[in-house]
Design a protein around this nucleic acid. Structure first.
Length: 874
RNA sequence: GCCGGGGUGGCGAAAUCGGUAAACGCAGGGGACUUAAAAUCCCUACGCUCGCAAGGGCGGUGCGGGUUCAAGUCCCGCUCCCGGCACCA
């Protein structure tokens, strides 16, 4: 460390200009060079380990935002490091090109969705190149191209043949604004995930994919991902799949309705079966209207059903929502006791979970308790609380915990935890149900009444029903001349000719399916297309099996129960079919969910949210430029147009260069945490890069000097830094922020080295070269330029990742903390291999420690090698 | 209610097999260089407190307990914030 009196550098304005790195001049040149040299083209190479890294591909909205920059920079760092480490790296990019925004934009701007999409792709690809992202563009995937979606039409047909794609009439989620149905996964808080408008239920016939066939494996294989995927995502998937072990119970109707002779219920508490005093069914349950048909209750019931049906999901699920219902007047028979049980229609019963009907045990279920209390229905205690006697008359809430079975016939005295299986067995014996497993996850509603999606390759013949389009006629493509409009009908359905075709079976007239597929279909299998681009039949299985699974996937956690679950489903299914390797059971071995990019918000009492430029700053006080009122600095929130806190990446790349923007987005926060954008922080990143650049110039421009006494410490730092950066980028957790901090420390150490400015010692050269090399994945352009300045003729992007010498990386002097009673009283230095016999006398002699030791009896000495010595005294 | 994550300087954050809290950076202060500015370089920077000074002392990682020679880190009990799910039978 230099004394404060060290003369400052002899820098001059001229020297500064010359030594300033200008990214605008250099970055595009290196981007071109990398592309010309094919540095990033993925190649299978004998003797190399494969490494497949990809980020969630973007929807081509046309605008690059900071979330993209952060996401893709992380993937690029990983790809570049792995390449330098000698892996055969596949790092591809593509476009999730089907979807509603294109269609909506097309309606608004009167351009074809394809034109809009393709223009955006062109634009965004240029932006990705400008960021220096090292994609293998030869494998680019665009999902709206027939050579892409033909494969998913094949997959669909195979699913249909295997009964995994089917049509059924059901209550489905319908978004009036987007004019289409939605999958369960796409309804958030009762709102459409895209347009945030309320979703309502409609009875429609739609195409479904049988993801429920894989519910069990999707759940059990979560254990394979433990520790490699974020815990949060795994737990969300578990909750989404929602496996519940229980029993199905069949209650025979007293009087059959048509061919319906019984009501099936699902329960997780078969042990309480003897406590059933009534049955509740959902308002949407088919029996709800049938049971009252022709009775005096009909009017009341239909009014009730209509009222509940009008409530949206939020209202209905609101906390503390009142339980209400209407008696049907019908009864069913308890399968074990033979008792007559009344049937109610109740608002709290959900049609889309279990069977849409529940057995009510008021004494042991809080909802049933409230319902029974309200309508004066009997409560029967059948599980006794340990050490107490429950009284149904005086209970104030249901008793839901385990206990001992009572009033349960032959099972009295059985612990309720054992009773579950006992009752299950009884039900099986009486053919009135039995043990079962219920899942919360529903089949995937695939069809959409929109134009800009992959056509569902089916035709319908009056004679032969739905038939797949013959393989020779694939792909089924979209017609260009359509009238796009909002409404419940697919534009394909209103096209004058497109849907008319012939039946593959009888050659008679038939109609094409006019619905298209959900956009999540495309993203469910796209890694496979990266692995095997260009084929026209099915994919090249050999290529797929070589590259798959993806070693590292990077994207946002918002896809936890959408894309990430669908992709797992497809991988398992295709593997079962043998279309990809049998041992490829999961698409993504490791997953990193990067945090959001956020910024503080400014709010004026008069003008609501305002842009930073509209804020007048005077010292601490912030006022609105328009009205002079005090500005409230709001919470740091995800960048969004409406909050006026968006920072555009492109102007920043213009001003500071891609390297700076990349470096900042990696440095400012841990990868999985929220990143708060800071303009000052960006400038800091820029300054650091300039600093590194000056170091490189100093080493390049000055003749090498002799060795220096300070070299040993610098060499140690250099090798320790290589070690740390390697671990931070390739270890269990990605820690780009601390990796960069380590390189900064190394640079600071070089600056403090006496020789770097005039006659750099060999250790200085080694340190600077190391800094340039290990920072190259993060700031590829500047380091590539510096690499040339340092006299190298090969590309840094192609060179090997530096290795470290573990002996050199070892500290030569260890600082020991000297503690008395756990309090720090001083420090001593020693050789790394010094043991307690060396340290203790040094510590005892330490002036700062002696006042606390002298005249006292030492009862214990704690010695931690390489760390500290602690005296316990009396 | 359930699941997951978090609370550390003015700010973003380091450090979690228990072992010198605040690395690295931002903002701030001081200085050098400069006619000046920018740029650059150096120093400084948790709070309270003792001292002319050099340099000490005490407190300190959301709150309250506990274990330990030693706790940001482990245990018990709270609290607040963020994200997700939720009348799931």
């Amino acid at each position: 460390m230099s004394a404060p009196t060290t003369p400052a550098t002899q820098s001059t304005p001229e020297a500064n200009e010359a030594s300033r790195f200008d990214p605008r001049a250099i970055e595009p040149a290196w981007q071109k060079r990398w592309a010309d040299d094919g540095v990033f083209v993925a190649k299978r190479e004998a003797g190399k380990k494969k490494y497949f890294v990809m980020e969630m591909f973007p929807y081509p909205s046309g605008r690059l935002h900071m979330g993209h920059v952060r996401n893709y920079t992380m993937g690029d760092v990983v790809a570049r490091v792995r390449r330098m480490q000698g892996h055969a790296v596949l790092y591809p990019m593509g476009w999730d090109a089907f979807g509603l925004p294109a269609e909506n934009a097309a309606i608004k701007a009167k351009v074809h969705p394809r034109t809009w999409t393709m223009q955006n792709i062109e634009h965004m690809r240029g932006q990705f190149v400008a960021l220096g992202l090292s994609y293998d563009w030869s494998r680019e995937v665009t999902t709206c191209e027939p050579d892409y979606f033909v494969h998913e039409q094949r997959i669909f047909i195979e699913m249909w043949k295997r009964g995994l794609a089917y049509r059924k009439g059901a209550l489905v989620n319908w978004c009036d604004f987007d004019g289409t149905v939605l999958a369960n996964e796409q309804v958030e808080d009762g709102l459409c995930w895209r347009c945030r408008n309320p979703v309502r239920q409609r009875e429609l016939e739609q195409w479904f994919l049988k993801i429920t066939d894989y519910a069990d494996e999707l759940l059990s294989d979560v254990s394979k991902l433990e520790g490699k995927w974020p815990d949060k995502v795994l737990r969300m998937q578990e909750n989404w799949i929602g496996r519940s072990v229980g029993a199905k119970v069949s209650f025979a109707l007293e009087h059959a309705v048509g061919d319906t002779r019984s009501i099936e219920v699902f329960t997780t508490r078969p042990d309480t079966l003897y406590g059933v005093t009534f049955l509740s069914i959902a308002p949407e349950h088919p029996l709800a209207t049938k049971l009252v048909a022709g009775t005096p209750r009909e009017a009341e019931m239909s009014a009730f059903i209509e009222r509940i049906g009008k409530e949206d999901k939020i209202q209905r699920g609101a906390e503390g929502a009142e339980k209400e219902g209407v008696a049907t007047g019908a009864f069913c028979i308890h399968p074990l006791t033979g008792a007559k049980v009344p049937i109610f229609v109740a608002n709290f019963v959900l049609m889309d979970y279990g069977t849409g009907a529940v057995m009510a045990v008021p004494a042991h279920d809080q909802r049933d308790f409230e319902f029974a209390t309200k309508y004066g229905l009997p409560k029967v205690v059948v599980i006794e609380k340990p050490g107490e006697t429950l009284d149904a008359e005086t209970m104030t809430e249901a008793y839901g915990d385990p206990g001992t079975m009572v009033r349960s016939g032959a099972l009295d005295g059985t612990p309720s935890v054992d009773g579950k299986a006992r009752v299950g067995a009884l039900l099986t014996e009486k053919s009135a149900g039995g043990p079962t497993v219920n899942y919360r996850i529903r089949d995937w509603l695939l069809s959409r009444q929109r134009y800009w999606g992959c056509p569902i390759p089916m035709v319908r013949c009056k004679e032969h029903g739905y038939q797949p389009v013959p393989a020779s006629e694939l792909p089924v493509t979209l017609p260009d001349d359509v009238t796009l409009a909002q409404g419940g009908k697919s534009p394909l359905a209103t096209h004058p000719t497109w849907k008319h075709t012939t039946c593959p079976v009888c050659n008679g007239p038939a109609e094409r399916e006019t619905d298209t597929m959900d956009g999540f279909m495309e993203s469910s299998w796209y890694p496979l297309r990266y692995a095997s681009p260009g084929t026209t039949d099915w994919l090249d299985k050999d290529e797929v099996d070589y590259w798959m699974p993806v070693d590292q996937y990077i994207g946002g956690a918002e896809h936890a129960t959408k894309h990430l679950i669908y992709a797992r489903f497809f991988t398992k299914m295709l593997s079962d079919w043998g279309w990809i390797g049998k041992d490829i059971r999961e698409p993504f071995t490791r997953l990193l969910t990067q945090g959001m990019v956020c910024k503080e918000t400014y709010r004026c009492p008069e003008h609501d949210y305002v842009y930073p430029e509209e804020v007048q700053r005077e010292g601490e006080s912030l006022t609105c430029k328009h009205c002079g009122k005090a500005i409230v600095v709001g919470r740091t929130e995800k960048m969004s147009k409406s909050l006026k806190n968006v920072v555009e990446p492109l102007p920043l790349i213009e001003q500071f260069g891609a390297d700076t923007v990349r470096l900042f987005s990696l440095f400012a926060a841990p990868a999985e945490s929220m990143l708060e954008w800071s303009d000052a922080g960006v400038e800091g990143a820029f300054r650091f890069l300039q600093r590194l650049w000056r170091l490189a110039l100093a080493v390049a421009d000055h003749a090498a000097g002799p060795e220096d006494p300070a070299d040993a410490d610098l060499r140690q730092k250099t090798h320790a830094t290589i070690k740390k950066v390697t671990e931070d980028i390739c270890g269990e957790r990605f820690q780009f922020n601390t990796a960069i901090a380590a390189v900064m420390e190394l640079c600071n150490a070089v600056y403090a080295h006496p020789t770097y400015k005039t006659a750099p010692s060999p250790a200085v050269r080694e340190a600077v070269e190391a800094a340039v090399r290990i920072l190259s994945p993060m700031a590829p352009h500047l380091t590539e330029e510096a690499w040339q300045k340092l006299g190298h003729t090969t590309l840094l992007a192609r060179s090997a990742w530096p290795t470290f010498d573990a002996d050199v990386a070892q500290k030569k002097r260890i600082t020991y903390a000297v503690q008395v009673m756990g309090k720090l009283r001083g420090q001593v230095e020693a050789e790394p291999d010094a043991d307690q016999s060396v340290i203790e006398p040094l510590a005892r002699a330490l002036g700062s420690a002696r006042p606390y030791l002298d005249g006292k009896e030492t009862t214990k000495v704690v010695f931690v090698k390489g760390r500290l010595i602690n005296f316990v005294v009396k």
